[in-house]
Write a protein that binds this DNA or RNA. Structure first.
Length: 271
DNA sequence: ATGGTCGGCAACCGA
């Protein structure tokens, strides 16, 4: 059966709930994974989403910063929220879809918001960059993120790293800019490799082609300058590596009124 | 080389 999943760093779900509704009406994914909800769990706009048909919600939110959520038209059977680097930051939530969702084989979905890492790409002087690197190391070392023996799993989110040359507008000019420095790109790829994850976006768009999901608020004309980065990702376990039937980056959402700086990424899986 | 913009929440911090 087809399972459609969208991931989107919304940068305040309460401020942009109308954009979320617009996206859900246009795309009608089965599941929406949000990052940077900036919203405690008891203030999450669940009623509005339920009216749109998304009655199943797993939130991991906090006041003011970070926060992730999974909203779904399909029921899920397990929810988990993991903490990383011994911090209380809300940066992960996962659910498992099984028989109730109509899946013969269960599939676990992880939704991540990796620390951005600050401006200075030196962990010795910038604790935020040190935190980012430690977070990526912990993702690599976490056994629960290593789907084995044909396990079906999906990992999505704002991973805040653009690992490939054509994941940024200028590889050369970005080498010392946090999000594309060699050390963090290597650590992200190490986490991906350790879990055997397949990069579903790059399975659909060749590595030689530019592919972005984020454009800075700080450019006068994001569309004209097009200095984007691919910070948002969809990984699938080897068992479903060849089951990705489509992948869409909703670039137009960057031009919506009062947009997020990230745009939605949608994959359709035949599972 | 520099500074440029957001959102939360009420000072700046995080991005």
């Amino acid at each position: 059966m087809p399972l459609t999943i969208t991931t989107w760093n919304i940068n305040s779900v309460r401020l942009r709930i109308d954009l979320v509704a617009k996206l859900l009406k246009a795309v009608r994914p089965d599941v929406l994974c949000l990052q940077e909800t900036k919203c405690p769990n008891d203030a999450f706009p669940a009623k509005r989403l339920a009216r749109l048909g998304y009655t199943h919600v797993a939130t991991n939110g906090q006041k003011g910063y970070h926060g992730v959520a999974i909203v779904s038209r399909l029921p899920f059977e397990a929810k988990d929220a993991r903490s990383f680097c011994d911090k209380q930051d809300c940066r992960h939530v996962s659910v498992t879809f099984g028989e109730q969702a109509g899946l013969k084989d269960p599939a676990t979905l992880h939704n991540f918001y990796v620390p951005a890492g600050g401006d200075e790409p030196d962990p010795e002087i910038n604790p935020k960059f040190a935190h980012k690197l430690a977070f990526l190391d912990e993702m690599r070392a976490t056994a629960g993120l290593h789907p084995v023996n044909g396990t079906r799993a999906i990992l999505v989110g704002d991973l805040n790293v653009a690992p490939l040359e054509h994941d940024v507008w200028s590889h050369k000019q970005m080498l010392k800019v946090v999000s594309h420095t060699p050390v963090e790109c290597e650590k992200l790829v190490a986490a991906q490799t350790a879990g055997g994850w397949v990069d579903a976006m790059r399975a659909k768009v060749p590595e030689s082609e530019k592919l972005y999901t984020w454009w800075s608020y700080r450019s006068a004309d994001w569309q004209a300058s097009d200095r984007g980065r691919r910070l948002d990702h969809v990984w699938v376990s080897p068992a479903i590596g060849d089951r990705v039937s489509s992948m869409t980056v909703a670039r137009a959402a960057r031009g919506w009124p009062r947009p997020s700086d990230h745009v939605p990424v949608t994959v359709k899986l035949e599972i």
